[in-house]
Design a binder for these strands. Structure first.
Lengths: 114, 114
DNA sequence: GAGGAATATTCCTGTCAAAGAATATTTAAA
DNA sequence: TTTAAATATTCTTTGACAGGAATATTCCTC
């Protein structure tokens, strides 16, 4: 009824839709990294890197572990599992529903008569 | 080397990160609809609906079929398949890599000595 | 061919988010 | 206990984008 999307909240997508954040996520695939390392490898400045990481963290995409001076960031599994099941739910509907325009056109014609 | 993300282009995510557009996509799961129907069911004004549909269309998420006066919009399978395989590629790495902070901490300590 | 649906487009405005620059905070090291 | 490294935070400016309102376009019907 409402605008709720089961499984995936939009904030996850919106967080990932920023190119630099997507790059950070791709980078973290290979394992946890510190802020400095992320900034280095992506050619970002430290403050923006921290800001992007904050967004990712606020959205549960990433989690931190403090280790002395540094903060180690790594991916969290949950949002990806959520996206996975969301996509899965699409896959089921795809082949059946996407392409049968014919049915719809008939429906349209029926409505015409009212 | 560049900022390219294999499989999913960021524009797909960015298009879906807008709540109304996500709602449109969710609505189109059940089959093709005209602009007017989409606007009605989501309580949107026609112009904004057309604009959102244009964005979805430009990003290949949706395709149009002109039927006389109306335009019938339906989902395209491709971007969802792309998202699916992107997510799949994550799933593989998840259990192995996400949680082994230990390895990384050792690496950090090793670097300390240089 | 005039009028009316259905849809697209344009212009304007306000909002929000990202980058830049500077600074604060925490912790290690000397 | 001063200094330096790693990270976070604040403030400001700028650009993109969504909504509102009005208008243009296409096509059907009479």
């Amino acid at each position: 009824m409402s605008g709720k999307t089961p499984g995936v909240n939009m904030t996850t997508l919106s967080a990932l839709s920023e190119p630099n954040r997507m790059n950070i996520v791709e980078l973290l695939r290979d394992g946890p990294l510190t802020v400095g390392e992320i900034a280095d490898q992506l050619g970002l400045r430290q403050p923006q890197t921290s800001k992007h990481l904050k967004v990712l963290s606020d959205n549960g995409i990433v989690e931190v572990q403090a280790e002395a001076n540094r903060r180690i960031y790594k991916l969290r599994a949950e949002p990806f599992q959520a996206m996975d099941s969301w996509i899965q739910s699409f896959r089921r509907v795809m082949q059946e529903r996407f392409d049968n325009l014919d049915d719809y056109l008939k429906e349209l014609q029926d409505k015409e008569k009212s």
